[in-house]
Design a protein around this nucleic acid. Structure first.
Lengths: 265, 265
DNA sequence: TCCTGTCGGTTCGACATATGAACCGACGGT
DNA sequence: ACCGTCGGTTCATATGTCGAACCGACAGGA
């Protein structure tokens, strides 16, 4: 392992729960010699990747990260930031995966991945804007949106489609979605097509978009398994777009879909 | 220079104008041996600080930066991110410096630095919310805000203060501010107090707040010199808060306040 | 088709650089 | 005064880095 890797791995010790770490703690957590760790910390600090809290002398993430991340956000297309993850999910699920962002009352596509090894599959139409209702992506976005936005979206939908919505049913529906951390539909927008979606969050912890798996209902997937697949990648998806998963959602994702721990005998 | 510093310095080669760089270009720009540069690039890529464009094989900033910057934004108070810069400016100017953020129609304080070596100076009152009008911070924020916001802010101000605004004068004023890249007031909000302010921008390039220097008018500072001080730190201030200076503003700052280049004889 | 230049990437001996046990003074608790 | 721990430093050692040379692939140009 190169010196560079050793130093950069130190940055991974910093988590939301442990945002500042002293020299001795870093040494323990990294399992390396204190002198080495110290030199690495100094080098990282000199480059602006870490800084020392003037009061406690503890190290925390530095301002260079902010600058470089802003540059990346500016220059790298959003699709490229998540395409590898979207492709991973698609490969695991063996179905169409689609990540879209909320823009006004519409969903615009950021990235998608198709599969080629099934004769029957759902195909992706990049031109069409999927609606906010009757899709798993839309439901999951509404579920994590503020109430006024939901009302406005319902009004807008009625104006556009002419068809009235069962307001109560919709509200109960998204309430259930919020409680389970993902949304699933079966033959909703199109006969014979099912889908499962999880939310993606922005830097303020607000819902920004959704990542969905769509598959022919006839394939007989268990929506829970598809959801587990998505949820396993959920934190990473949000992180790569510069967002933060709200702790409430993170808790639901962990407790409901984690690999069960072995109980004490 | 440590290996770590050498590797991390490679990241500074990436700029908005040059977002992706091939191995040979990195080698030339860094002035190092190709093998060394290559190992460093690989190490940085392994840690997620760089990634390779699958098509061109060129390196660009990686997803780990996004993740770590989001963590820093979440855990480090906004004030800490800029306090050292604000203190630098205060030391250079020898006056009160104040960085505030727009929240609705109010300015809330993020960070400030006072000086202690003048018997007469402007003091900072952390409790009071400075208004959007009749302050340099407010003017510079309005100057870079969208027109509907300016109208709404003017309406709100009239409701709050009861005093009518000279709408035309205000609009001409902020137009001038936009043209010169900073705002200056003299005996505006308080008799005997002058101030100069520059805007601070968010990740989308929209104005997010302002950084101002306030001083007793009697000190006889040249507002242009104070502005030059602020403008020199402007890009860094915005960068540390995760923002992007719009190119239009960056151009004004460069052309109007840069050290003049020597003409060809 | 061959020649040439450049691309990204690799090899290996020489050697510069990172390593870690031991140590330092400061601090806080007892 | 003692003890444990803190952040940080020293120096002989050996490990990982360095860089000239090299590789195959590719793109023009003649």
């Amino acid at each position: 392992m190169s010196t560079i890797a050793k130093a950069l791995n130190l940055l991974d010790l910093f988590t939301p729960a442990r945002p500042a770490i002293g020299l001795s703690d870093v040494q323990r957590l990294a399992g390396r010699d204190k002198a080495t760790v110290h030199r690495h910390l100094v080098a990282l600090s000199d480059a602006g990747f870490l800084e020392q809290d003037p009061a406690t002398r503890a190290y925390r993430l530095g301002h260079a990260l902010t600058r470089l991340a802003a540059m990346r956000a500016q220059t790298v297309p959003a699709g490229d930031m998540v395409s590898s993850l979207v492709e991973d999910i698609s490969r695991q699920a063996g179905e169409l995966v689609h990540l879209s962002q909320l823009r006004g009352f519409d969903l615009v596509s950021i990235s998608h991945a198709e599969v080629h090894d099934h004769p029957v599959r759902v195909t992706f139409d990049a031109a069409g804007l999927p609606p906010l209702f009757n899709t798993s992506s839309g439901k999951v976005i509404l579920a994590y949106s503020a109430q006024p936005f939901v009302s406005a979206a319902m009004a807008e939908h009625q104006v556009r489609s002419g068809a009235p919505l069962q307001n109560d049913a919709v509200l109960r529906d998204i309430e259930a979605v919020r409680a389970q951390g993902y949304a699933a539909t079966r033959d909703a927008l199109e006969q014979g097509v099912s889908s499962v979606a999880i939310p993606v969050f922005d830097a303020q912890g607000g819902v920004m978009g959704a990542c969905s798996v769509a598959y022919p209902t006839a394939r007989g997937h268990d929506p829970k398994e598809i959801a587990a697949l998505l949820i396993a990648r959920g934190p990473d998806l949000t992180a790569r777009l510069g967002g933060i998963v709200p702790t409430a959602v993170a808790d639901i994702w962990n407790e409901r879909h984690a690999v069960p721990e072995r109980r004490q005998p």
